[in-house]
Each structure stands twice: as C-alpha cells, then as structure tokens.
C-alpha cells in the first residue's frame, strides 16, 4: 500500500485510491463541485486542484482523479492553489450569481463578489445529472448539447426524452437544485380538438418529459412512472404484474 504525505501528514493509502478520497478519509478538506462518490471522477470543476511533488517534478493536478502513488507529497493549500480556487469560484459566481450552492462555496473560499459582468444561470455544468443518468440509471436520457460557451445539458433536441424513466436521480444529485420534477394528480393533454385528462403524472420540467404514473391495483394511489416500472421490472426479470401494488398494499 502506497505511503504518501498530504499537507505533511503521513498516510498509508489503499491501492487505486485517489488523492481526494484519501484526503477526505483523513479529515483533510478539499472543495469540489463536480464530484460525487457514486460517480466516476470527472475533473471538470477544477476546484479540487492540489499540488503534487513526485520527486522529479512538482505540478498541479485535480485530486479527484489523480491516483495515489508511493512517495507522493501532496499540498492541498498554498498561494497558487488558493488564487486558482478563488478565480474558479469567481467565474462560477459570474455565471450563477443566484445559485445558493455557488454562493456558499464562494463564502467558504473567501470570495465576496465578482469583477465580471454577471449572467443569471443556475446550472454550473458539473455534469452530475448526465453522468448519474448514464452510469447509475443506465438510461442516457439526457446529454450535453453544443460546446464551448454554448454548452448546456439537454434532452434530445430539447424535446421530450423517450429514454427518461422519471427516476429523479438527476434532481437528487444536482448541486444547484436547478433540475426540478413534480407529480401532478390531473395531467392534461391538449389537442386541437380539445383537452383530455390523463390522470396522475410525473413531470420532469427540465427535460420536457411527462410520464404517466402507475396506480396501485388495490388502493388506487400512484406508485411510480409506468415506464420506470416497466424498465426496472424488465431489468430485474420480474413478472409483468410484480409491480402492480404499492408498497403499502403489498405489506
């Protein structure tokens, strides 16, 4: 098991671990914005930057995806690192001045305002929603669209996503809470000829997707999106009627 130091502290780390994992396990705080333990490291927010000394050379790396090595000396805070983190959060604060998580992080890093003309976005493009949908849910209902200054997260062609199962994992992981979903009791379809009531539905607001909710055969209460139950049932190899009852009625 590799021996290394983080901020001078001697640490023995498990093989294959990242600097961030090891630091956090040892009570050393490194700020992150695009990292989630359940997801593969992404290395996009760059807040977790640290300095590593490998003997032959010293360089700045992102701790979330840098594997620990024998003899590594890691510094999580110095003048450069602090200046870089401050600039990064200032850039994010410029993009999302009203996102609570960004403001909290700015506070924590001692940045009170931005010197650039502000925008009013809420999404910081950390990509957690896209990644959770791919890596954990396996649906790949959403993706990045465009690139550079126009990059955004979107459902295909900015329309209803046929792959979204309405699980809400994206809502759950979003650090700035800019993804929302809600269940409605009386969804309405609008046609040229008139409207039609379709009953319970889950609405994924950002993905322009509405999924009818399956109701419990016994008590009539909504369980979950029908499509979600279909997909999960198929994956788990359950009988078609295995998910007909809500948790309460099953017991």
């Amino acid at each position: 098991m590799p021996q290394l130091t983080i901020d001078g502290k001697q640490i023995t780390a498990p093989v294959g671990a990242t600097i961030l994992q090891v630091a956090r396990e040892n009570g050393i705080d490194i700020p992150t914005f695009c990292h989630h333990e359940a997801l593969e490291p992404w290395g996009a927010c760059r807040l977790c930057i640290v300095e590593v000394d490998e003997g032959s050379r010293t360089r700045l790396v992102t701790s979330c995806n840098f594997p620990v090595k024998e003899g590594l000396a890691v510094t999580t805070k110095n003048k450069s690192i602090i200046a870089i983190r401050k600039m990064i959060i200032e850039l994010l604060l410029t993009r999302c001045p009203n996102a609570q998580a960004v403001r909290q992080m700015a506070d924590k890093l001692g940045v009170t305002g931005t010197r650039f003309p502000i925008e009013n976005e809420f999404c910081i493009l950390c990509g957690m929603c896209v990644r959770v949908c791919k890596e954990i849910v396996g649906a790949q209902a959403i993706s990045f669209a465009s690139r550079g200054g126009n990059k955004k997260v979107a459902s295909p062609f900015f329309k209803r996503s046929g792959d979204c199962i309405g699980c809400g994992a994206c809502v759950y992981v979003c650090p700035t809470q800019c993804i929302t979903m809600n269940d409605v009791t009386e969804a309405t379809d609008v046609y040229a000829e008139g409207t039609e009531q379709v009953g319970y539905a889950r609405v994924m607001n950002n993905w322009r997707t509405r999924l009818p909710l399956k109701v419990c055969k016994s008590c009539g209460n909504p369980i979950a999106p029908e499509f979600q139950l279909q997909v999960l049932g198929k994956k788990a190899g359950l009988a078609p009627d295995a998910l007909d009852l809500c948790q309460g009625c099953k017991e």
């Binding site: 996009a44 990064i88 850039l91 493009l125 990509g127 690139r147």
Partner: peptide
Amino acid sequence: EESCGKCVPCRE
C-alpha cells in the same frame, strides 16, 4: 467556439 466546454477555467 472551439473549447469543448467541459472544465470551468477554460469554458468560463
């Protein structure tokens, strides 16, 4: 226009 837009320092 050519930045991939993935990381903050470059994109923003």
